[in-house]
Every structure is written in structure tokens, then in C-alpha cells.
Design a protein around this nucleic acid. Structure first.
Lengths: 256, 256
DNA sequence: GACTGTGAACACGTTCACAGCG
DNA sequence: CGCTGTGAACGTGTTCACAGTC
């Protein structure tokens, strides 16, 4: 689990299909580039400059070029990137050429919303099964899918190849669900429950915690308030500034 | 925005209230520590070691100690940290001593779920108002709050001091909503719409994009698959490993 | 003896600035 | 000339390892 690739050691010559071992920070931004590219394609653009794509994705152009260069990029100097080609490249790297199946566990408040979210379908994912521990919820149909009892997980997973598990249960149930998902062979989990999961090595967990996001904003809010209270210089920037434009910075400075 | 506190330069003596100018990465972890601390407090612990708290929060102890040291930490060598005291400290730094009001715009699928999410209330936030652009949705009552038309935003914001705006609209509406929030004086926005917002300097935006999270997992899934396909060594770790324990690493390696 | 706080080393990520190519 | 690709400089974040303290 430790080592991090000496600069020129592995995969000598030859055209290895795709596993360029990208930096995590780059991986995290590729989906945003992809979304921006799709928008550009929809509005008829055939090529973009790094500057153009960077703006659309909310980053600066140097970062974008560095990121794309990691995938052995397909840009043309003096021109820019071919939109369609780049979409293809990124989708291939992200493993989105096949549609991935998602199992969603916990159809409470949030789970319900996720089950009905069409953003998944349009971006390479298919919700393949819904589960809940509450017998009262089992049998309910959401968006054309019937909610099953969580104990059926292994049986259902045997029928369909589940690529990713999503946990939207209360915190106290989350670890048990994670264990079950792992037992069934799931190696990628998206966790919405406010708790830390322990999983065996080789299983990836990403966590989304709504309250944490708010608390981080709260900190900045708090800090801005403290700052305007003391020094004589500032204080003007706070007055309403409609027609909001400008400021490319904030998002990258903060969005981790 | 640059400097990093010369040991004795500013705010000389005296107890400056709180603006220790923490590293962003630390700020992003404090809420997790806070949650872990509340759990510990609930189960009767009065003190924790850095090791114990680190485990509960899913990080390593060195990182935790460094983080806490930034807030001029209140630990006792040979003993650990006083749970109650640390909770107080962190809440104060995060600006959670006052309950912050949140305005939620867009009560579709996701917005509905957010409006009903009790995790907010229990962690320092109060949903103060709901808005939507769809007249069919205006007037609906969710969790004791009536949905208002988004054009009423400025009027409602005048009555209540809104600390944070949450955008849960479709992407095409998000920028306009952001502009309206900014115009009303909101300087912190949590954006669930899959698009980049431009906002004036001084306004913080955090973005949560469900599909992006899945796409990042997809990448790792894809990579794991490529790896097990080629080399002769691995391949065993993939077989079901129930009773999932161990593996503290994965989460920090991945959760940015 | 046990545990915190922290300097120093290291790894990772970002930005700069320009060489190289179409 | 315009724009990509990239080495080199910089900054941030993480880890190590130990001195300092209770």
C-alpha cells in the first residue's frame, strides 16, 4: 500500500492500453473537464483552447494543461484540443466506456433523492438495485425499481455485477452495510453516512458529508466576520455587489 | 492571505478571540474531529489520546496533533485531550457557537431530501427558508417550512440573517440563483448543481457533485481491474474478505 | 512512562515561464 | 504568431522522529 512509483521504472516501451497512474488531484478534476467538454460539444464547439476549457471548468489554464499532459494529451499546438477526442480520452481513462452499476443502500430521505437523481444515468451510471433494512420500506417502488431487503444483497449482487456501492443509511448502520458490500465483492463505496468506515485494503471509500461542508463554510463565514470587525481598511467588499461576475479564484482556493 | 504568523509578531500579548488563520486542509478535517469528539463524549469519555481521536476520525495521529497544535491546542502531555474542552475549542474556531441560518433554493428531488435532513439541525444549522422557481412547488410545506418563490428571496433575507445559501437547482438555473444570493449579501454558498459558479471575490463556494464522486470511484475501479488483469502477483486481494476490519489507509489516501 | 507539540525531511500539488511545434 | 507541453521554482500538506512535559 505504500510505495509511489520511481520516475522511470515500470512499463518500459510499448503501448500499454491505459493506466497512466495519474496524480489523485488530477483524477479528481477530470470529471469536471468532462462535464465542461460535453457542454462545449453540445454548443457546437469542435476545438477548445486550454484557456477556454479551463474557464469552463473553473481552474486555471496551466493546471489544466498539466493535467491533460498526464494522459499523454491530444492537443494541437497553435490550435487547442479536439473536443470529441478529448471526451473519448477522458471517458476511457475514467473507465466510463462501460456503464457502471450502482447498488444503493438506504432509501430514507437522502436515498430516495439519490434513487431519483437523473444525473447518474446521464453520466455513466445505472442504479441497479435499492436496499433498505426497514421492512416497511421493502417492496416500495422508486423510479421503476423495487426496494429489497438488505439481506438479499448477496443474492442480487450475484445476478448483477455491482461496480459501486452507495451507503445512504443512518450512521449506526453504515459499517455493517459496508461489511456486507465488501463481502459481496464491492471494492468502491460512496458513503453519505456521517461516520468513518473501516474496510480492507484495496477497497476505496469516498465520503460525502453535507454537514461538514456547511461547517467548513461556517468557518470561512466566521473568519470573514472577524476580519471586517477589526481592521479599518476592509469592510467595503461585503456590501452587495449584484450581477456577480469575475472571481475565478474562490472556487479553486477552496474546493479541495 | 500569505504569511504564516511569525512566532511573536502580531496581536502581541492578550487573548485575541479567534482567527488563527488555519491551513485549509486542517479546516476541512476539524468537522470530522468534532463529530468524533461528540461520539466520544456521548460514550462517557472525558479525555482522548491523539491516537484514539485519530482512529475515530480516520486519520493518523501525527496529522491530528499537527492540526490541533494550530489552534494552540489544549492537550496535556502524558494524558491526552480533554474532550469537552476540545469540542468547545473547535466549535468556537468553526464559528458554530451561534446557530447559522441556511437558505435552500430548489426543492426538487435533492432539495426535498436536504430540507428534511436532520443532520443539519443537530450540527449547528437551521434551515431558515425554502425557495423554488416552479410556481407549482411554491406553497408546499416541507418539514414545517413553506416553500416560497425565489423572487421573494430578498424580502425574506431582509427578515432573517442568512448565513449560507444552498443551491439544489438544475444546472441551468444555478448561476442566476447564485447571483441573487450574492445580491442579498450571502457570502457562502454550497452548490449541488453540476456547474461552475462565478461569484465576486470574497464569496466562498463549495461544490458537491454526486456524479463526480462516482466517476472518481469509477477511475479507481477501472484501474484495479486493469491491474489484476496483467500482473501475476495480485488478484487474491479481490476475493471476498468478510468481517471487514483493518485498513485505516484507504480513506485518507483518497478523501481529499 | 506516556503522550503532546514541533522542527526538519519529505511528498505532493500548483504556478511560472518559456521552449518547441503547428 | 498562438497555443501546447513541460522543466524548474515554489508553496502546501504530510510524515518522521524526538525533545519536552506532565
Amino acid at each position: 500500500m505504500s510505495q509511489h512509483r520511481h520516475p522511470g521504472a515500470p512499463g518500459r516501451a510499448g503501448a500499454v492500453p491505459t493506466l497512466p497512474d495519474l496524480p489523485e488531484a488530477t483524477v479528481a478534476r477530470l470529471p469536471e473537464y468532462l462535464r465542461a467538454l460535453h457542454n462545449l460539444a453540445d454548443s457546437g464547439h469542435e476545438t477548445v483552447s486550454s484557456e477556454g476549457l479551463a474557464n469552463a471548468a473553473g481552474v486555471n489554464s496551466a493546471k489544466l494543461r498539466k493535467d491533460l499532459s498526464h494522459l499523454g494529451s491530444y492537443g494541437t499546438r497553435g490550435v487547442g484540443y479536439d473536443v470529441a477526442l478529448l471526451i473519448e480520452q477522458i471517458e476511457s481513462v475514467l473507465g466510463l466506456t462501460q456503464c457502471r452499476s450502482v447498488a444503493l443502500v438506504g432509501v430514507g430521505n437522502l436515498g430516495h433523492a439519490l434513487a431519483g437523481y437523473d444525473g447518474f444515468a446521464t453520466r455513466g451510471f445505472r442504479i441497479a438495485a435499492l436496499f433498505d433494512a426497514d421492512p416497511a420500506r421493502v417492496g416500495e417502488e422508486i423510479n421503476g425499481l423495487v426496494v429489497r431487503h438488505v439481506d438479499e444483497l448477496s443474492r442480487v449482487a450475484a445476478e448483477q455485477l455491482i461496480s459501486i456501492g452507495v451507503i445512504a443509511t443512518p450512521a449506526r448502520a453504515a459499517q455493517a452495510v459496508a461489511d456486507q458490500l465488501v463481502a459481496v465483492g464491492v471494492t468502491s463505496i460512496l458513503n453519505f453516512a456521517p461516520c468513518v468506515l473501516s474496510v480492507p485494503e484495496g477497497v476505496d471509500v469516498r465520503k460525502v458529508d453535507l454537514a461538514i461542508e456547511l461547517q467548513i463554510l461556517s468557518f470561512h463565514e466566521h473568519r470573514k466576520a472577524s476580519l471586517t470587525a477589526l481592521p479599518g481598511t476592509a469592510g467595503s467588499a461585503l456590501t452587495a455587489l449584484p450581477g456577480g461576475l469575475a472571481a475565478t479564484d474562490t472556487q479553486e482556493a477552496i474546493g479541495t
